[in-house]
């Protein structure tokens, strides 16, 4: 027991996870009534980090599909999906967490929105990405914190 604890700690420190050691694994996230009630980490989400993840093409790339008016300085907002202005007035924090973690649990299998913290994904995943969600637990929390600022 002791040993495992130490090993985890050492791993965590080595990979720089120390601050977010209590992380819910992607396949352990609990969806209930279109919500994920509990935070995926024990560090609070940071909206300033969240907006970076949101616009980054290699991370959230949320603008690929969604328009956000207050981000109009960013080029090329897609319109595959509804605009996210006012999203926080339409959805509770816990619902936003569920949508970002695995939108299919909220919108149904047909949605084109990727599950950003899910391992229930497509076939033939690129080898170096197998077993990895698109975003980390902390990045999801940061994005959710950012979405929570989008009030009408």
């Amino acid at each position: 027991m002791r040993l495992t604890g130490v090993a985890t700690l050492v791993t965590a420190v080595c990979f720089g996870w120390a601050a977010e050691a209590a992380e819910v694994a992607p396949d352990q996230v609990k969806f209930e009534d279109n919500m994920v009630a509990a935070s995926l980490t024990d560090a609070p989400g940071n909206p300033e980090e969240g907006v970076k993840v949101f616009v980054n093409r290699g991370l959230g790339n949320c603008l690929a599909c969604h328009v956000v008016k207050s981000l109009s300085k960013e080029q090329f907002h897609g319109n595959v999906a509804p605009a996210l202005d006012g999203a926080a007035s339409r959805w509770k924090m816990e619902e936003l967490r569920a949508i970002v973690a695995d939108s299919k649990k909220v919108f149904g299998e047909q949605t084109v929105m990727p599950g950003f913290y899910s391992l229930e994904i497509g076939d033939n995943v690129r080898k170096d990405l197998v077993g990895k969600p698109i975003l980390t637990a902390q990045q999801v929390e940061d994005v959710v914190a950012y979405l929570a600022t989008l009030k009408e």
Partner: peptide, 28 residues
């Protein structure tokens, strides 16, 4: 219609369900 990859898209996600829309700068 089979979904592939970490992003979990099929051809139809882009060229059928989202046809005519913009995905970032690309007109599908």
């Amino acid at each position: 219609y089979n979904r592939t990859g970490q992003l979990n898209f099929s051809c139809s996600s882009c060229h059928e369900a989202s046809m005519g829309k913009y995905i970032r700068a690309d007109h599908l």
